[in-house]
Design a protein around this nucleic acid. Structure first.
Lengths: 189, 189
DNA sequence: TTCATTTCTTAAACCAGCTTAAGCACTTCT
DNA sequence: AGAAGTGCTTAAGCTGGTTTAAGAAATGAA
């Protein structure tokens, strides 16, 4: 819980009372590895702040395989924005990769939090601007680099994280097969 | 200018005086086809709301060709968020595709607008949530569909817009060559 | 209405990355 | 300890999509 409050204080000022309001609106969850927070078909009810551990977001392709589209580690928010905003069934799953602690902020809690402490509008706006920047950055990598280059790029940007997750998840996120990843790694040796 | 005020009023309430504040902070620009609003290397200074016409965002790949990553039509905002947020040189260009009218909101104007009329934090937060939803949706198409399927999907989703822009721009946006687009179209006949 | 430029199409050769199928090396459970 | 599952690698054959190069059609300027 403290890590979120610290995070918010980086962007807006928060007094004692406001801090209490924040704490009251978030629900801490301790989750085992491979716990689903959101499943295809459900209407996404909350956004999640990762205190410790790691989440992945993925969807099921027509051929039945999983396609990972995002990871979230410490101090990142994750949710299905379209499902949450418009109350439509999600086409994504969100799952823990490791044992993970998150803070859950559900639809009503967010709306009430924003009413009681409107400066949070600013915090979320800034977070979302960062998220949009990251999306645009990622588009550059997706379209500007070959799959092999994307792999090397990812390792260079996030070497520790690349060690932390199974290779096949990395392959899925980067948009290719585990077999092809093996070939890339063989080339490097 | 009216179209933006109308757009804002869909999400927050705006009185006479506040409406005036909004108007004072935005600069209307009338631009000819192929005008650059942002060029690689510049630090992005503003975000743009499209009143009439159409923008594209693209970057130059290592092989020298253009890769389009986004379009913006009437009632959409466009900017390079990373360059704007962090004052770093942009690696994108933003250009008009047709003769276009935009409202420009530069860094200082936005900050002053948010101070004078804090409810705008809410408007921008909601816009950004929608943008994030659209990004996630698009990721599903990128990774879940073949290039040919992506083409059919795009035509089905935005038939009018597909007519409005040159084919080669559509091919670039969808991540393939104009030659391949020609083949797909031939197949359909 | 003519010329120049931009956009779109065709076709053949080519290649990055996929599929399939098998074997190996870990973990984790009983 | 053994069985069962999970994750990683190898290799051969295949395919979706690219490249190159040329020409046809549309658009716009003069």
């Amino acid at each position: 819980m403290n890590s979120l409050v610290e995070h918010i204080k980086r962007y807006i000022s928060v007094n004692r009372k406001e801090e209490k309001v924040i704490r009251e609106h978030l629900e801490p969850l301790s989750l085992k590895k491979k716990t689903l927070l959101l499943e295809t078909g459900q209407i996404c009810q909350a956004e999640y702040f990762v205190v410790k551990g790691c989440l992945r977001m993925y969807f099921i392709k027509d051929n039945g395989t999983e396609q990972i589209t995002r990871f979230a580690i410490e101090n990142w928010w994750m949710t299905d924005y379209m499902s949450l905003n418009d109350c439509v069934p999600s086409r994504f799953c969100i799952e823990t990769i490791e044992d993970t602690e998150v803070l859950s902020l559900d639809r009503e809690a967010k709306s009430s939090l924003l009413q009681e402490f409107p400066q949070m509008e600013r915090y979320f706006r800034i977070m979302l601007q960062k998220a949009c920047g990251a999306s645009q950055q990622r588009e550059r990598y997706e379209y500007g680099l070959s799959r092999e280059e994307r792999y090397h790029n990812f390792i260079a940007l996030l070497p520790d994280f690349a060690q932390r997750i199974p290779q096949y998840m990395l392959a899925s996120y980067l948009g290719f097969t585990p077999e092809y990843l093996s070939e890339i790694r063989k080339k490097m040796r």
